[in-house]
Design a protein around this nucleic acid. Structure first.
Length: 106
DNA sequence: CGAGTGACCGCAA
DNA sequence: ATTGCGGCCACTC
């Protein structure tokens, strides 16, 4: 299989790049879709050193919250998501997470 | 080249 | 309900 894209980041970036507007994905979900549900950490690492053109802002943690290393802080992250039409709770968490979680089976 | 860290997740006590 | 630990891959020093 010559085209063995061992680059995990390539698949992660591919998925993130395909996340539609107004939708979000969780690190664990992306990692699982990439083949390793326990590689959620890798997704985070790639997010920091991966392609900055990808909408990492649409990538949130399992709690529907945001990561800590985002440029600008969690507040900026939430603001950007709200701009995409995503509703947030008063605590900084997505209100209808299930409603904004994008599923590849669609 | 070797070792450490990291934007996480899941389970156990 | 909360806290602590292990595990995976990729990137950096």
């Amino acid at each position: 299989m010559a085209s063995v894209e061992s680059a995990f980041s390539d698949r992660v970036e591919a998925l993130v790049a395909q996340i539609p507007y107004g939708r979000v994905m969780t690190y664990g979900q992306i990692a699982a879709l990439c083949g390793n549900a326990r590689a959620a950490r890798v997704v985070g690492g790639i997010a920091h050193f991966g392609n900055p053109d990808l909408p990492w802002q649409r990538v949130v943690n399992r709690n529907g919250g945001m990561a800590s290393g985002y440029p600008g802080g969690r507040k900026a992250h939430q603001q950007h998501l709200e701009q995409e039409g995503i509703s947030f709770d008063g605590d900084g968490f997505i209100q209808d997470l299930q409603n904004v979680i994008w599923r590849p089976e669609l």
